[in-house]
Computed example of a mutant assay.
Amino acid sequence: MSEKEPAKREKHMEFTPLTPETTFQYADLSIKHINAENTLAMVKRAIRMGYDAVAINIDLGDISDYYTELDSLWTPASQSNSEGEPPKKKKKKQQRKDELADGIAGILKKKLIPPPHFVNASQLNTSDLEKRGKVFRQFSRITFTANEQVVINKVFTHPTVMSYDIVAVRPGEPAVLDTLSRKTELFDIITIDHLEENRGKWLSASKVMDRIRNDGVCYEIAYAESLMPATRKNVLFNGRVLIRSLKSKNVILSSGAETMLDLRSPVDVMNMSLLWGVANSDARKMISGFPKNLLLQAECRGTGNGDVCSMKLSDAEKLAGEEDEKEEKSEEGAEETTTVKPPPIEVKMNQAQYKALLQATKNANDMMKKIKASKAASSSTAPPTS
């Protein structure tokens, strides 16, 4: 991949809704994958509860424990002659050899990033959803904790990570959040680590959080951790701080379920949102509206950028009329069409806009000539005053 080309995610998600009947109603974007049998049972239970869109989440933990990319390590020359070298140089070479051995040993200890997991759709009973005119959708998701800023660049460009539909990051330090604010085109969700009390330090960076939210990234609260006594206090406190900082915008509620007992129905989740101070009007958005926006943006994320130009409807019709006139003249061969010079470099417009500007200028000049001619004719025909 060349340096100029943007990183593209090889996803297989097809979410774009074509009709209102096929849009999903409720989504749970965090069903943790532990084994295939447990994941299939939880997806079946989610469908019975009324969810028509789920994301199967593979949580890696600290991403530094996984193999991302070989670092540029120093390799000593195989046929170097160390005889006759000063002691300092010999000691430095030996130190480099030890560093090389430690680096290779550390890489070999790292684990490979697993591929996305999907359940077999033929084993699911979606008859209740079809009766309501809904279509079941499943998406793949990867979640990892980023404690170092250096690792982030390697992770997002990893081909396995790019094959996931949704990428979620769990920032460990405020400095990592600042780095993520400049790479919002590469991930979709920022989630909170409730297992340690010092993980919520970045929640006070409201300006950075607003900048990330404005780019379409969502923040997540996993309600399954609020059901456990060990993490309940941290989940409720961090969730309230998060919702207060973002004013309930672009915040989604997911289960983060590892067992079937952690799943709750959509109505229960909306009622549970009152624990975080969410208004009744915003509760439904957190499991329906905001997840839908997230999936639409995740589908477009990583694609090439395009340019859109706008112009007035009258100018567009005039330009279309000129094109039709030009085609008729070329077919009849009555008149030769004049070539338009390309616009100068400093003018930032395309050929069609430049032609429309020239035509508008010509029309304005003709109008001014007609006005002057009519004024001159009226002054010459006016009777002389006594």
Score class of each variant (00 low, 15 high):
residue 165 D to I: 01
residue 153 N to Y: 09
residue 37 E to H: 08
residue 260 M to D: 06
residue 92 K to D: 14
residue 59 D to K: 01
residue 381 T to Y: 01
residue 126 T to H: 06
residue 295 L to G: 10
residue 360 A to N: 13
residue 355 K to V: 14
residue 56 I to Y: 04
residue 141 R to N: 06
residue 115 P to C: 04
residue 230 A to Q: 09
residue 248 S to I: 00
residue 228 M to C: 04
residue 261 L to Y: 03
residue 28 D to M: 09
residue 190 I to T: 01
residue 168 A to C: 04
residue 118 F to G: 03
residue 150 V to E: 08
residue 160 T to Q: 09
residue 147 N to A: 02
residue 290 F to T: 14
residue 352 A to E: 14
residue 386 S to A: 08
residue 270 M to D: 06
residue 75 T to W: 09
residue 36 A to F: 02
residue 287 I to Q: 11
residue 45 R to K: 15
residue 355 K to R: 14
residue 138 Q to L: 06
residue 8 K to H: 13
residue 61 G to R: 05
residue 108 L to D: 08
residue 103 G to E: 14
residue 309 C to A: 13
residue 186 L to E: 04
residue 191 T to F: 12
residue 248 S to N: 13
residue 360 A to D: 11
residue 32 K to E: 12
residue 330 S to Y: 03
residue 289 G to Y: 12
residue 196 E to I: 09
residue 185 E to I: 01
residue 54 V to P: 00
residue 287 I to C: 09
residue 156 F to T: 02
residue 267 V to M: 11
residue 317 E to R: 09
residue 4 K to G: 06
residue 277 G to S: 02
residue 201 K to A: 13
residue 325 E to M: 11
residue 192 I to M: 10
residue 50 G to E: 10
residue 148 E to P: 02
residue 212 I to F: 07
residue 248 S to E: 15
residue 104 I to T: 07
residue 87 P to V: 06
residue 386 S to T: 10
residue 283 A to I: 03
residue 235 V to D: 03
residue 268 D to S: 13
residue 222 A to M: 12
residue 19 T to K: 05
residue 166 I to E: 00
residue 146 A to S: 13
residue 35 N to T: 12
residue 92 K to V: 02
residue 263 L to F: 05
residue 105 A to Y: 12
residue 221 I to P: 02
residue 385 T to V: 09
residue 312 K to M: 10
residue 50 G to S: 11
residue 95 Q to S: 01
residue 40 L to N: 03
residue 242 L to D: 07
residue 69 E to R: 13
residue 96 R to L: 15
residue 220 E to I: 06
residue 55 A to L: 07
residue 277 G to Q: 01
residue 276 W to P: 00
residue 152 I to T: 04
residue 52 D to K: 09
residue 155 V to Y: 07
residue 64 S to R: 11
residue 319 L to I: 05
residue 18 L to K: 15
residue 83 E to P: 00
residue 279 A to E: 14
residue 266 P to A: 09
residue 163 S to P: 09
